[in-house]
Design a protein around this nucleic acid. Sequence first.
DNA 1: TTATTGTTTGACTAGTTTGTCAAACACTCT
DNA 2: AGAGTGTTTGACAAACTAGTCAAACAATAA
Lengths: 221, 221
Amino acid sequence: MADRTAGRTTSSEQDAADTETRIFEAALRVFARKGRDGARLQEIADEADIHRPLLHYYFRTKQQLYDAVAERLFNEFLLSFDAPAEGGRFADTLKAFINHYIDSVRQHRHAAMWMVAENMAGSPILGEMLARAFATEGSPQRAMVDAVERAVASGEIHPVNPRQLMLTVVSACVFPFVTLPTVKMMNPLAAEDFDAYLEERKEHLFEVIYHGLATREVTHA
Amino acid sequence: MADRTAGRTTSSEQDAADTETRIFEAALRVFARKGRDGARLQEIADEADIHRPLLHYYFRTKQQLYDAVAERLFNEFLLSFDAPAEGGRFADTLKAFINHYIDSVRQHRHAAMWMVAENMAGSPILGEMLARAFATEGSPQRAMVDAVERAVASGEIHPVNPRQLMLTVVSACVFPFVTLPTVKMMNPLAAEDFDAYLEERKEHLFEVIYHGLATREVTHA
DNA sequence: TTATTGTTTGACTAGTTTGTCAAACACTCT
DNA sequence: AGAGTGTTTGACAAACTAGTCAAACAATAA
């Protein structure tokens, strides 16, 4: 790869940056569609509108291209979350989290599917990144755990394992995108107007998770 | 493939059936591990302990082998569900559904991941099979929808879109298996004793979904 | 202008992988 | 035993694909 100096960007440097970006974005799309093994470098090159050997010039090998795209993608995805507001009812925090998560996955559907594929292939990298995020003071992920614990302490919600809860919420937000064709076939609204369906889903998730299904409150351990 | 007659099975017919079965099971494992594109026919042959051309003798092409395994796998998975009991509280029905679903996915983890991969590749076949199941009088899937509707009518639970609810439950049950490496890294118990973790998860899911997080009941539309 | 540096191109290679085929084999039935 | 059927084997071919390379090209700096 070119060693770009700190000085004024020249037109060739501009071209190079453009090329690299185009490769990057094309690779993102193709890998997301076809998976690492199904993707062909020729298809990526075509989609980036460059000659195939340039892929090797910028990213040595297919695997290195894949890894580079994956790492940036995962980072961007994790960084796309805001920390929940400190004060206020947990109900609002939860609602905001659900809404934000669904919007995020809708916008970064490729990234979400990529991460799932990586997990199914046994890769630990998402786990490592998430573990780092949870260990980082002030990260949105950590803040969410704290918010759950505060809400339990304040008595707003029942005692609950925050990690189980987060997994539940994330599952319910991400899974529909991962199984999109099935969801669209099973739900007329999802097929007609997916955005409207997602709004319905946001409401549903909040109602079920915060208030539960049962009509009368039951004391439970 | 051999046309097996209706008469007494001969030893060669037995051998052939064995071979076919071994191929089938090897293909299941390899495809589940590597995906359709990542899987090599040689690896399947090795794992089945046969010569590679036999794969073509029994299943014309790689794609046909893949399709054959996928179809049987999906069918078995859908058939592995029992219809919920007719009477009794919905709470019990829901609890049984969650427990059964988690156990089912644990046992057929390969199938679940395969179905997710197929969806991510855009395939409609899971949707088609599920749509058929939902349309079939007396199927477990249909029975679950009915149970939800009865529970709403009887006032045991708040009004809820049964399909949204089922998607939520299924998401929360399947997703942890799909993201297993991450789950194990984020939750010590999952890494140490996954079965115990799943028991914890069953409880958590029922509590959250049936009773909700909130400590006091709030009237809502 | 000319040298230098980084980028792009087309041609080529080496390895892999699916799929075919004819011959060898095993088993059953007459 | 011998014919007939279905199964297994080893060798082969055809296609594809990642990766290499040297030469052509473009832009800048001296």
